[in-house]
């Protein structure tokens, strides 16, 4: 795998607290990599280290194979942070122009026009950014991240606080960047649905440790192998539900009207659950193994951590 970003046993202590406890992951070139975790997990610290804003206490970090402490590497990284850091009193054109000059972009005018068109802000180019909606600001922040055509984009909560239609627009821009322009995107987000939709690889971090890491689809498949969904013709009587709850081997997890969700113990098959229910005259209309959603994976990870 050609690594765009690689972190190996990265540790960071802030004050007396060890914020990152030896995290390691790799983001391949062209990946849209989802970086998930609850507040205080260490996401922002990781992003700040990647952008050279904080120094890791130990560990190896590289972006496009180069040490991140070399200032030249900043020319190859684009970023959108939260808060966005745009100047409210300046227009979109002026904001982009400022960053284009910082990155020594040639033909600034043409580049700005292209970017504003790409994020659909050409008609508001002369308006002060202070008058923009949150969604427009985030689109402009993405344009700023792209102003010097970096190979790697680090995006921290790019859809936070954006309305659903704005989220779709921002998401589409991210997908275009990754797929059409072959950029590598590291996306930190709380929006699990968004990550599930667009990220091909993910890492879940909690309390400074990577708890889950890999390809989104294979992780979902791996996690869902034990989840069984049974559709019933009518609501299951309470007495049967009570009996089910007392049988941990069947692992009833949820009861949603005419749907029962099980996480059976090892050795139990779907047929065992069906037999048990039919013996009690429960009419079954369907049975299937279910793929876990990212939300379920996330909850499971957090539960595990709480139990520890």
């Amino acid at each position: 795998m050609n690594a765009a970003i690689s972190l190996e046993d990265v540790r960071k202590t802030l004050g007396n607290r060890e914020v990152l406890k030896g995290i390691s992951f790799t983001v391949a070139i062209g990946d849209i990599f989802g970086y998930l975790g609850p507040n205080g997990a260490g996401k922002t610290t990781t992003i700040r280290i990647l952008l050279g804003l904080l120094q890791a206490n130990s560990g190896n970090l590289a972006i496009m194979g180069q040490d991140i402490n070399r200032s030249a590497i900043r020319m190859r990284i684009g970023f959108a942070l939260d808060p966005d850091g745009l100047y409210d009193n300046m227009t979109a054109e002026e904001n982009l122009g400022f960053y284009a000059r910082i990155y020594r972009v040639s033909d600034v005018g043409q580049r700005i026009a292209e970017l504003l068109k790409a994020v659909d802000l050409s008609d508001r180019a002369q308006d002060k950014v202070g008058t923009y909606s949150k969604g427009m600001r985030q689109r402009l922040a993405l344009a700023r991240a792209m102003v010097h055509e970096p190979e790697v984009l680090v995006l921290d909560e790019p859809t936070a606080g954006v309305d659903p239609s704005g989220q779709i627009e921002v998401r589409q821009i991210m997908l275009n960047l990754a797929h059409q322009k072959n950029k590598t995107v590291l996306l930190s987000s709380h929006n699990l649905d968004e990550v599930q939709r667009i990220c091909n690889r993910i890492a879940l971090i909690d309390r400074g440790e990577i708890k889950l890491y890999g390809e989104t689809d294979s992780l979902r498949r791996g996690m869902s192998s034990g989840t069984v969904v049974i559709e019933t013709a009518s609501e299951v009587p309470q007495t049967i539900l009570d009996e089910l709850k007392s049988l941990p081997k069947l692992g009833l997890r949820e009861n949603q009207e005419k749907r029962l969700i099980f996480s059976p113990q090892e050795g139990m098959e779907v047929s065992d659950i069906i037999s048990w229910l039919t013996e009690r005259r429960v009419k079954i209309e369907g049975a299937a193994r279910k793929e876990a959603t990212l939300e379920e994976m996330y909850s499971a990870m957090l539960k595990e951590v709480e139990q520890i």
């Binding site: 952008l51 804003l53 200032s71 900043r74 020319m75 970023f79 942070l81 850091g85 745009l86 910082i102």
Partner: peptide, 15 residues
């Protein structure tokens, strides 16, 4: 500082 302007500048090649 509170609006992230300074942090954004620090993430660029500026010293």
């Amino acid at each position: 500082k509170s609006r992230g302007n300074i942090t954004a500048l620090l993430a660029t090649p500026l010293k």
